[in-house]
Write a protein that binds this DNA or RNA. Sequence first.
DNA 1: TGTGATGTTGAATG
DNA 2: GCATTCAACATCAC
Length: 263
Amino acid sequence: MPELPEVNTVRKGFDQAVLDLKIIEVEVYDDKILRNASGVEFESTLTGQTFTGSYRQGKYFFGDLDDGSAVLFHLGMTGDIIYYHDDADRPPHERFSIKFSSGLKLGYDDPRKFSDIRILENRQAYLEQIGLGPDALEIDAKSFREIFDGRKTTIKALLMNQKLIAGIGNLYADEICFQARLHPGSRAGALSDRHTDSLYLKMREILQTACDRDAYYKVYPDDWFWKWRTDKIEFLEEKGRICKSKIAGRTTYYIEDYQKLIV
DNA sequence: TGTGATGTTGAATG
DNA sequence: GCATTCAACATCAC
């Protein structure tokens, strides 16, 4: 479930585990997810180098290499990074592995292969090229408000549009709408400043809380919307009927009447 | 066994 | 500009 908090957690783990360790071996088992290099090129480019730092914007995570280039790790829907020493602990759908001087291995796991892994000479230029919007935890209130002005699209589609705000996916979009008590199908441009500010504050609070808890949903607050997926749905039911529909092309859950529809 | 749904993005279409 | 559909791919629940 890699949205901003999950990717943030992957980055934290990466920094802790492999920064400043020399890469001594790279093995590619499936080059489908390598979008601009062959397996052999990937192996030879990385081997001998060191990750000196990392960077994240939205769901895009980069490992910076000592020659000034960078590796993009975009996790898609099911990408994940696992660290291990013993090959017996290899993840089940490992597409490549990177072995470091300490003997530690970074295993890249991705059952559905929607990941986008690529080598970039300049990550900043790449971000500009794809037009990725400002990170959801970095954007200021004024810019956030301006995004909504005059837009006919739904607030859910807007929140998930990575070119406008980077980092929010289907699940957190629903969580933000729920906590801001706004119907996900509300028209962006129809929102008052008070509503937009409420969305902004909830977005920050939710993403920050999730990051602080390492995106480990089991320790998320009990009054979050996500709890509908667990056993604690009584508190939701007393607010109203739990509805399921398709908004912005994605399965969407919300509480009827509790979340105000503004059109 | 078959069918539909699933956290991602991007392209094509209307 | 925006909504919709599809494609990439594998797994899981029903």
